[in-house]
Write a protein that binds this DNA or RNA. Structure first.
Length: 722
DNA sequence: ACATTCAGATAGAAG
DNA sequence: ATCTGAATGT
């Protein structure tokens, strides 16, 4: 292959990064500056020019999507799969290490990863079992405490209690850890901590990997936390080369322990590491880019970097003040339809919001107009109740000691194991320090329980054993099919009524086909197909399977939009209290992170950016009036164009960016307000969108839910305010 | 033991 | 508004 191809089309800085001799370096890469390209070309360069074996390369990312993309692009650039190269997420790679060395890591061969939902349930049980007041010791907070300590590399025995409260958290941490260890359960933080400890305690294993990975590349380095940093530091050792790519302005995961300061730490620890800045943006038109730059200078803690582009001005940013969230959604959908009418494709459009809960209203509006959409993140397939139930059976089949799975399905469907029987099991397991399954078999074998409870529990134990036996010779998807059927799960859901039940059955069937389509990854050495599938469900369920190539509007949170780009971007709900979020205004130091999040949002847009906010919004069942976000004010007016209602009656000056009510005064004499919901005897419910004139002759425009928009004369319409 | 009803918490992001 | 766990009824 012609090596010069690897540098073709790169700018000077990009070339410097790609073609540097193997060494440690920092690439400060602004949004849209081609950092993935640099990473991909760097990997190729190391193999082609520096003659590094793929076996010696490790590339670490945060999301599965980023890992998959990098892998795909490297393979494409080099015309074929590069065997032996490790590309994956921190969690994925840690998992792989633990599987390969589970004995040295002190884990059973069939250890299972649990997600935060399982973790929370476990903690709830535990806190209850410790006779602690759940109000005073919320499981959520325990989870947060434990996660935080694991991020810092701390075990309960490392912790010193300075007050009785902390002392109790440590006790909970300890009990939780013991119960996980007994059951062979590993939470997300544990994956990282344990693989770090593996190296710490087994120097020969560390030496092996240090020896192997002479070049390590890390993407989105600003998102690394303490344990990840320590992990990388240890692996790199004195011989390896660590290339980190990141952007301090896009650090948006501080809340889960990410330390931007790790970039500085890297520069100190890796003395002599070169810094390369990528500041040319290839993504956005200059209006959008300038707006982003203007916003981010309001942050004080920056490394200093200003993006520039050769692109032309482009369209101004459109700002829309909506009456409420429904109006906002309708506006967005209307613009998307226009885009589509002009020949644009739906998949060019992304709707970005601060929190997942905001997607609902938008979905409704899209559904109404029959526009296809796809949601990233949020409720994932493998998070669904029925799927988790089915998977819990599989987990128990795989590992009888999996208490989280046991608790979940002992009595699902109900089989006579109620509070009474269950507390017998829990007590026994607590007394003996055993798992629930062990407790159950122990009690049965020694005839320590009798009556109804005993026979119910016996039946359950026999059921699981039978399922395991029945399924021994079957393919994975047949196993799941069998288990779902014979466990009684399926009929349980079939007996439920309503649309929900129907979709639950469909999801269970979908699970079977997901299993049928599951290919065991070639990096899962020594794993059974089931173990790999179970791990996949926890670790990689995020990226949806179907619809990926359909032409659909993309819906996602601002967080999950990082790393992506779209020709048309809508940022919705840009209001004080939403974005920046309420919590961030209260916690110190979080505001700058919110601003970075806004920066991330703006810089996703290539050609057109819409920002909208609602003057009134229904939140937690209450009507709220928010002010426009401070971030809007921080964007210079010259980059912004305000959008008004279709028929312009109002004076532009009256409809200023931050006016909230003055223009409504004369109109209010009619008794109605813009954005108000009204009921019409014939046309049904609608929203007041616009008005003309005043007094009894006043005509108002109403957007009816079913019939679309109509102009009506107030005095004849006999509207009922809602 | 199970089904139904009720009250109260809860809406911040991802692996 | 929606979901969860507890209280209540059968």
């Amino acid at each position: 292959m012609d090596v010069s191809l690897l540098l073709d089309g790169l700018n000077d800085e990009q070339r410097n990064a790609v073609a540097a001799p193997p060494s440690s370096m920092l690439v400060l890469a602004g949004a849209g500056s081609g950092k993935t390209r640099v990473l991909v070309h760097r990997l190729a360069w190391l193999m082609q020019v520096e003659q590094c074996s793929p076996y010696s390369l490790l590339a670490v990312t945060f999301t599965n999507k980023a890992a998959a993309e990098m892998r795909g692009r490297v393979d494409k650039l080099l015309n074929g799969r590069q065997q032996g190269m490790w590309i994956g997420t921190f969690h994925g790679i840690a998992h792989r290490l633990l599987r390969a060395h589970h004995l040295d890591a002190g884990l059973p061969a069939e250890f299972q990863i649990i997600d935060s939902d399982d973790q929370l349930r476990l903690l709830k049980r535990l806190i209850k079992a410790m006779n602690l007041d759940e109000k005073q010791w919320p499981a959520k907070q325990a989870m947060w405490y434990i996660g935080g300590k694991k991020d810092e590399g701390l075990r309960p025995e490392h912790l010193q209690a300075y007050d009785p409260i902390e002392r109790n958290w440590i006790k909970i941490y300890q009990a939780y850890q013991e119960s996980c260890d007994r059951a062979g359960l590993v939470d997300f933080g544990e994956l990282l901590l344990r693989s770090h400890e593996l190296w710490l305690h087994k120097p020969h294993i560390l030496a092996h990997y240090q020896d192997r990975f002479s070049n390590i590349l890390v993407d989105e380095f600003q998102d690394t936390n303490n344990i990840q940093y320590a992990w990388l530091r240890m692996l790199t050792g004195d011989r390896g080369n660590l290339m980190i790519v990141g952007d301090d302005d896009q650090s948006i995961y501080g809340w889960r322990g990410a330390q931007v300061a790790n970039i500085q730490r890297f520069l100190t620890d890796f003395d002599g590491a070169k810094t390369i800045k990528l500041e040319q943006n290839y993504r956005s038109s200059s209006n959008i880019l300038n707006a982003a730059n203007a916003l981010i200078v309001n942050n004080s803690e920056r490394m200093g970097k200003e993006l520039w582009t050769e692109d032309n001005e482009g369209d101004p940013i459109s700002l829309y003040a909506s009456f409420n969230e429904v109006d906002e959604a309708r506006f967005v959908v209307g613009r998307i339809k226009e885009w589509q009418d002009q020949g644009g494709s739906l998949s060019d459009c992304a709707i970005l919001y601060r929190s997942n809960a905001q997607s609902r209203v938008v979905e409704d509006a899209l559904l109404q107009e029959q526009l296809a959409y796809r949601i990233y993140g949020g409720h994932r397939f493998f998070d669904r109740l029925e799927i988790k139930d089915a998977m819990a059976y599989m987990r128990l089949k795989n590992n009888r000691d999996d208490d989280a799975a046991f608790e979940r399905i002992v009595n699902k469907p109900t089989r006579g194991i109620g509070d009474r029987a269950l507390s017998l099991l829990r007590d026994a397991s607590r007394e003996q320090g055993s798992t629930l399954w062990q407790a159950a078999t122990y009690l049965l074998d020694n005839n320590l329980i009798a009556g109804r409870a005993a026979s119910s529990i016996r039946k359950f134990v026999e059921l699981i054993t039978a399922l395991d036996n029945d399924v021994a010779e079957l393919a994975l998807h047949e196993q799941i099919d069998h288990v779902v059927l014979y466990s009684g799960l399926k009929s349980m859901y079939q007996l439920e009524k309503g649309e929900k039940a129907q979709s639950r059955i469909e999801n269970l069937e979908e699970l079977v086909s997901a299993a049928r389509g599951f290919k065991i990854p070639d990096d899962s050495e020594e794993m059974t197909e089931l173990s790999a599938f179970l791990a996949f469900a926890v670790l990689e369920s995020a990226e949806g399977q179907a619809d990926e190539f359909d032409d659909a509007v993309q819906l996602m949170t601002l967080h999950s939009a990082k790393g992506l780009e779209f020709p048309v971007v809508f940022m919705i709900g840009v209001e004080e209290g939403m974005f920046p979020s309420q919590q961030s205004t209260e916690e110190s130091g979080r505001m700058e992170e919110e601003r970075r999040l806004c920066y991330v949002g703006i810089t996703r847009a290539m050609k057109k950016l819409y920002i909208s906010y609602a003057e009134s919004r229904r939140l937690y069942g209450k009507e709220m009036n928010h002010r426009p976000s401070r971030f809007i004010r921080e964007i210079p007016e010259k980059y912004i164009e305000e959008i008004r209602l279709k028929t312009q009656i109002r004076q532009p000056t009256q409809f200023g960016r931050f006016s909230a009510g003055s223009e409504k005064m004369s109109f209010e004499s009619t008794g109605y307000q813009l954005g108000q919901r009204v009921l019409h005897a014939k046309f049904g419910e609608g929203i007041v969108m616009n008005y003309e004139g005043s007094g009894p002759q006043c005509r108002i425009q109403i957007e009816f839910d079913q019939l679309g928009s109509k102009w009506l004369v107030v005095s004849y319409a006999r509207l009922q305010a809602l």
